[in-house]
């Protein structure tokens, strides 16, 4: 392990501060787990509702540590050719042709070892993260969208930070990446995967923290208005909605309110800007019915 090359943080507080500088307000457990992940070299599995800043945490870690962010967005049917590596076989074919034509007598067939080298390898995100000479932050986003088979393939990478290519052998990580996996909990992940990760459950922040976060991202907003905004958002989240408003949406709403020049959230401004936080037809009706009368 190349831990000595990197300047590892000394305490959770240091991580929290670095994340703060990278415009991410981490709570105690987030900071502690980020710290542990760096010190122990273990991947973090981040779960929680949509839009609480799971992906943002990876971005912030990348900014805070000054490492490059390598991102793998997962989707149904994602396979190793798109996630790990692929042989650039056009190049291989051309190579074979080129060698064959130089050896006019045709005595030697092409040595197969020559065309299965790093030169003919197309690196996909996971490979890129492993083979990068600089340490990186690897984000495997929405791992729950893939199949269990893909999860199983990740196991080697996550526990040993290495990839086995049949033609070339093992490729180990030269540096130790910080790995984050995010999941929206749309299906249960396998025990094997969870076992290899540190677990972080991110939830909606409490009132003070959300106000802080909003003021961080929309600094022009008035404190009282931010407080009022968070209260209204809280009310909305308590309803049984298809898609409750996330932090990202609170921030968008704050920015919208600034643009609208609103200094309070009354019925009119609420109705006008409702579509910023509510993204479902049936939700709109429900909110209009339940929340609007309470705004007073």
């Amino acid at each position: 392990m190349a831990a000595t090359l990197q300047n590892l943080p000394e305490s959770p507080a240091e991580v929290a501060e670095a994340l703060g500088d990278a415009a991410y307000l981490a709570d105690d457990s987030t900071a502690l787990i980020s710290y542990l992940a760096q010190r122990l070299g273990k991947p973090i599995l981040v779960e929680g509702p949509a839009g609480v800043g799971k992906t943002e945490l990876a971005k912030a870690l990348s900014r805070a540590t000054g490492r490059e962010l390598v991102r793998l967005q997962c989707y149904e049917g994602l396979d190793e050719a798109k996630a790990l590596y692929e042989w650039n076989y056009r190049k291989q074919l051309l190579q074979i042709q080129a060698t064959a034509s130089t050896k006019e007598d045709g005595s030697d067939p092409v040595n197969m070892g020559e065309i299965f080298t790093a030169e003919f390898l197309l690196e996909r995100p996971l490979m890129k993260a492993i083979a990068n000479p600089e340490p990186v932050v690897l984000l495997i986003d929405e791992i729950d969208k893939t199949d269990q088979e893909f999860e199983a393939m990740l196991l080697e990478l996550l526990s040993d930070f290495q990839i086995t290519i049949p033609e070339m052998g093992r490729i180990g990580a030269t540096t130790h990446p910080i790995v984050l996996l995010t999941s929206n909990n749309s299906r249960e992940l396998t025990e094997a995967l969870k076992r290899r990760c540190l677990y972080l459950w991110l939830d909606y922040p409490n009132r003070e923290r959300e106000i802080e976060i909003i003021r961080l991202h929309a600094p022009e907003i008035d404190v009282a208005l931010a407080g009022r905004l968070v209260d209204v958002i809280d009310m909305v989240r308590e309803l049984d909605l298809k898609k409750p408003p996330s932090i990202a949406e609170s921030i968008d709403w704050a920015r919208t309110l600034i643009l609208m020049g609103a200094d309070d959230i009354d019925e009119k401004t609420f109705r006008e800007s409702l579509s910023i936080i509510i993204k479902h037809r049936t939700d709109l009706d429900l909110v209009a019915e339940k929340i609007v009368p309470r705004l007073g």
């Binding site: 959770p12 105690d28 457990s29 502690l32 787990i33 542990l36 010190r39 122990l40 273990k42 599995l45 779960e47 249960e188 969870k194 076992r195 990760c197 540190l198 677990y199 972080l200 459950w201």
Partner: peptide
């Protein structure tokens, strides 16, 4: 084992850190 490795680098005297470090290594769902 992970829990013990984590507790090696987290001051056990801080109750919050101690608990969170233990939680993140052994409790893996809400």
């Amino acid at each position: 084992q992970d829990a013990f490795r984590a507790l090696e680098i987290v001051p056990w005297t801080s109750p919050v850190d101690f608990k969170e470090a233990l939680a993140t290594t052994v409790a893996k769902s809400p």
